[in-house]
Nucleic acid binder design. Structure first.
Lengths: 123, 123
DNA sequence: TAGTAATAGTTACCTACGCTAACTATTTCT
DNA sequence: AGAAATAGTTAGCGTAGGTAACTATTACTA
């Protein structure tokens, strides 16, 4: 899709997105945000490090690995952001602002329902 | 998610779904419907054959492989259908019929916009 | 009608990305 | 101080996407 233009994959993008919007995050934070197990995050973050898009920033708690975007990582994020914004504009053609807000509101309600269902810490 | 309760994976389900709603289909038809390459379809259909959920029905054109659900395949489809219907009811709790129709209409418009964008036979 | 095009599928191979189980290192709690 | 909890890693499994190169069959065309 749009991401492949930038040689980025979905899971990789979702982490760049999170870091761009939250500044920095530990692997566990990312894991919770994405709803994915820790080893999955470890692997993708490692890949992003190899690509030079994210870097480790040491903190007090030496167990955790707090990550942030690098300069190139921010650059890539901005580039993809533009591509995606353009894509969104295209696919929303002919849909009024009002309709968009309606749809977003409803989707948020559904999202809340889903989150409540999956609230069990385990399973 | 809901599919894992039935030991089914997303791509597998999408093919069962298509066959349940269209009766039978060739691999190329499935490939077009799902928007994935032929080898991907070959693999997943092979897996579904191993599981005994789909079977080959010979036709005139001996190049193509027309598939349909088996008895057990239909049974599984129905079972999953029930699980998913229940799930949908749950996550739509508190959203009026009117709102649902609105959202569906808007999503269909977006879908059409996306399909038009990707209309190029190649690329 | 013989020969070429196109079409349907397959095989082999690469990568991404979920998962679980079992582990180390560090911090927190008792 | 010692046990329990937390953060992350490693190894290994399976599904699922992709491309390149191939076979078999059908359709087109000169």
């Amino acid at each position: 899709m749009e991401l492949s233009k930038h040689n980025l994959y979905r899971a990789q993008w979702s982490i760049l997105y999170y870091l761009a919007n939250y500044g920095s995050a530990t692997l566990v934070e990312i894991s919770n945000y994405l709803g994915v197990e820790k080893p999955t995050v470890t692997r993708t973050v490692t890949r992003l490090e190899e690509l030079g898009y994210v870097e480790h920033v040491p903190g007090k708690d030496r167990r955790e690995k707090r990550m942030q975007l690098t300069e190139p990582g921010s650059k890539i994020y901005q580039d993809v952001r533009v591509t995606i914004d353009q894509f969104e504009q295209d696919i929303l053609k002919g849909i009024s602002e009002e309709e968009q807000l309606q749809a977003i509101r409803i989707m948020k309600e559904i999202r809340n329902n889903i989150l409540q269902k999956g609230d069990n810490k385990n399973d």
